[in-house]
């Protein structure tokens, strides 16, 4: 009975949603938008302050944001304050997990021979891939969030693949707080040098080079370290359990 009522409510909701959306969007086909009228054109052209021009990969210099990956330039340059808020939310959730799982020791999952052998070989490669992803976040797909999570996955594999690792989480906390503090210090440096919080105050270089885009690579490395240590902390806290004798 309850399921029937729920189904009915869902169908009513689906009817209203589809009729409401059908007016604005080309709903049943691949949606298409008029290119000229969308807001992110300014982000794509590096033209928010109104001094942009044609962008050529490898030639354009001293752009507004200077990152080849436009998503990165939005996440850590144009909307960087938003990102600061997001990693604060992630920090709060990690704090909540740590507080609620407070007492306890590491779960003794019996890891088999295959996992132990493979973890030794695969975990360093995963760590290296994570570092590559967040240092090249302004050139290739990826960035701090997937790179940090990949580092956390490598940590997790190492954590369960070896018997010798004790649950000593001090370095993680240290990295996390240092990265967060450095992010805010970079923002304050933008405030004092260029006049607004988290502004891109370094020279942005040539579009498409590794050393370019001002503070974007620095911020993304910090975000990657912070997200990686936070997610590792969540995972390590999560795998603790009460001592069952």
């Amino acid at each position: 009975m309850k399921k029937l009522v729920s189904l009915f409510l869902i169908l009513v909701l689906a009817f209203f949603l589809t009729t409401a959306l059908d007016q604005g969007l080309d709903f049943w086909h691949s949606p298409s938008q008029l290119d000229a009228f969308r807001m992110s054109n300014a982000f794509v052209q590096n033209d928010v302050l109104g001094e942009g021009g044609a962008l050529v990969f490898g030639e354009s210099k001293n752009l507004e944001s200077g990152s080849a990956n436009i998503v990165t330039s939005i996440v850590v340059d144009y909307r960087s304050f938003d990102t600061l808020g997001e990693i604060t939310v992630l920090f709060l959730s990690a704090l909540g997990v740590g507080l609620l799982m407070g007492s306890g020791v590491r779960t003794t999952l019996r890891s088999g021979f295959i996992l132990k052998t493979a973890a030794k070989m695969v975990a360093p490669l995963m760590l290296l891939t994570g570092i590559y992803i967040f240092t090249h976040g302004h050139l290739t797909p990826g960035g701090g969030f997937p790179g940090g999570s990949m580092m956390a996955t490598a940590f997790l594999l190492h954590y369960f693949g070896s018997d010798t690792v004790k649950s000593n989480l001090k370095p993680l906390k240290w990295i996390e707080s240092t990265a967060g503090a450095l992010y805010i210090l970079l923002g304050l440096a933008g405030l004092f040098v260029a006049g607004s919080f988290l502004q891109n105050f370094l020279p942005t270089g040539t579009l498409g080079h590794l050393v370019s885009a001002g503070i974007i690579p620095l911020v993304y490395v910090l975000v990657g370290l912070k997200v990686g240590s936070e997610v590792s902390g969540i995972v390590a806290d999560f795998s603790k359990t009460e001592v069952v004798s």
Binding site: P141, G142, P146, S149, M150, T153, V235
Partner: peptide, 14 residues
């Protein structure tokens, strides 16, 4: 691609 990478790491792994 950025979102796909993030979802691949987090959604199906962690």
């Amino acid at each position: 691609p950025d979102v796909a990478l993030t979802e691949a790491v987090i959604g199906s792994g962690l």
